[in-house]
Structure formats: C-alpha cells, structure tokens
C-alpha cells in the first residue's frame, strides 16, 4: 500500500520532470514562475527593446535612488531635533536651473534611441512572407496569404489539456512560421478590438475592425521554439481565453508543414486574397 503510493508519487514526479525538461528544450517564450524580467527575446526588435528598456530602467533607478538619498539625508539632518532653527532660504537660481536642465538632458538621451527603435520596429522592410491575423470573440484566425492556408486557433480548454501543455496558453492549431524569414503581419478584427501580443517577438498590435494594422518579425534560427502570447485588449467575457501560440521552425520544416497544412486546412476561399490586396493599398468601405 505504502509502496504503491510511493511509486505513484515517483511516477508523477518523473513525468512532471520530463515534461518540464522537454518543455525546456522546446518552449522558449512562455512565462516562468516568479519571473520578474522579460521573457526570452526572439527577434532583433525585442533584443533592442530590452536593451533600450534597461537603459531607461537604470536611469530611472538612479533618479529614484537620488530622491530617496536626498530624503534620507533630510530626515537625518533636518529633523526638528537636529536642526531646531529652520533656514529661510527659498531661492537658488543655480539649483533651479540645474534641476530643469538636467532632466531635459536626460530625456534627450532617452529620446534618441527611443525614436531609432521606433522607426526600426515599425514595418518590415523586405517582407518574404505575410501572415494575416484576424481576431474574433474569442479566437484567432490566421491566413498564410502566400500559400493560401487559413485556419482558426482556439484555446485548449482546461479539461482537455495533455501533459506538458500550458493552461490558458496552448491552442489547438499553432501558428507555424519559418525562422530566418522576414514576416509581415497584417491584423484586423471581425468584431471588437483585440490585441495580438507575443512578448518574445516585441509585437503588440491592436486588431481593429475596419482597419488593417501592420507589424513584422524575424526569428533567427538559433531561437527555434514555441512562443506564447495572449490577447491584450479587453474583448469581452473570454478575453482571458484567447491565447496565441507560435511555433518557429526551420525553413525546411516549414516547407513540410506547409505541404501537410494544405491538405489539413484546405485553401482559402477564392475572394479573400483579392480583398487583402485591395485593403493594403487603400482600405475602403468596400474592403469591409
């Protein structure tokens, strides 16, 4: 009796460990317990973003510590006991100029890399393929406009999770995308506003009905793996239940996936790509 319970325990432990290990090998972009920093960066945009964030972060830590330090000094030196007679100083031109000009300079130092990164992350320069993302209450649909594949992606409900799958993050049909490929992302929505956000890619874009928004990503081959994201704009009751899961695979694997997918998902309905081309050039009322 006792033995069998121990056996069971070990079995659970073992399967948990293998799940965790195998997860380690593939899953790159999922949140980790007690995480207090960014997830792994998979795209150059996210790499730069983290670098830039760290720059601001340390500047701001310095500011906060500076203020804290001044306050500590004040508490020690200028409490009523230590300093019974208050001064009457109320002006010091040098100081007043300093605490106006120095923040300006700090902000300039922040603004320059900020704007550079902004322009860099804006749009794909030479997109090699396009993924069209459409949001619905409460799932995503994806169209590979170059190869004409389209499918929906739904969250796997809790009671159907297989071991190793992540609650609230895993989906029935993951998006599969090739590494080393500059991918243009086009997004829109069928109903309310949602937001397609995958942290490791540095992509976070509202999907707005009536509009087509654009973003882009490229994942180098050494970052092959699975990346998770969640809908990030309140979209109604199941806002928490429309995750995003992306498999980044090698170009070769992608080709074989494509071949499979074409039979699995079938082709787009005929008019869809036309709709898209029109929408890109000039979104108009008819495009909806």
């Amino acid at each position: 009796m006792i033995n069998s319970r121990w056996m069971l325990f070990l079995l659970v432990l073992f399967s948990a460990a293998t799940a965790a290990l195998s997860a380690d090998a593939q899953v790159v972009g999922a949140p980790q317990p007690w995480e207090w920093y960014f997830r792994t960066a998979a795209t150059p945009v996210q790499v730069d973003l983290i670098w830039f964030h760290d720059l601001i972060f340390w500047v701001e830590v310095a500011i906060v510590l500076f203020v804290l330090g001044l306050m500590a000094y004040i508490v020690v030196k200028f409490n009523a006991k230590a300093n019974p007679v208050p001064s009457r100083t109320t002006h010091n031109t040098f100081l007043e100029v300093a605490w106006t000009v120095i923040p300006v300079l700090i902000l300039v130092v922040i603004a320059i890399p900020s704007l550079r990164l902004l322009f860099f992350m804006d749009k794909a320069k030479n997109p090699e393929m396009t993924l069209k993302i459409t949001s619905h209450q409460w799932y995503w649909s994806y169209e590979y406009t170059d190869s004409g594949i389209a499918f929906d992606s739904n969250m796997i409900p809790e009671d159907q999770l297989k071991p190793g799958q992540l609650r609230l993050l895993d989906v029935d049909n993951r998006v599969v995308l090739p590494a080393d490929t500059e991918i243009r992302l086009l997004m829109t929505s069928e109903d309310v506003i949602h937001n397609w956000a995958v942290q490791s890619f540095g992509v976070r874009m509202d999907t707005v009905p009536g509009r087509i928004n654009e973003s882009w990503m490229i994942v180098p081959a050494d970052k092959i793996g699975t990346y998770y994201g969640q809908c990030s704009e309140l979209c109604g009751v199941n806002h928490a239940y429309m995750p995003i899961a992306v498999d980044i695979v090698s170009k070769r694997d992608f080709q074989s996936w494509l071949a499979q997918a074409k039979t699995k998902f079938g082709r787009l309905d005929a008019d869809a790509p036309v709709k898209l081309v029109q929408a890109e050039t000039q979104p108009s009322l008819d495009a909806r």
Binding site: G210, P283, L285
Partner: peptide
C-alpha cells in the same frame, strides 16, 4: 482616419 476612403459615405 484610414477608414474614410470615401466621403460622404455610401
């Protein structure tokens, strides 16, 4: 507003 390609509408 990139929606309004046409004005007035309809």
């Amino acid at each position: 507003n990139n929606v309004a390609g046409m004005w007035p509408n309809n």
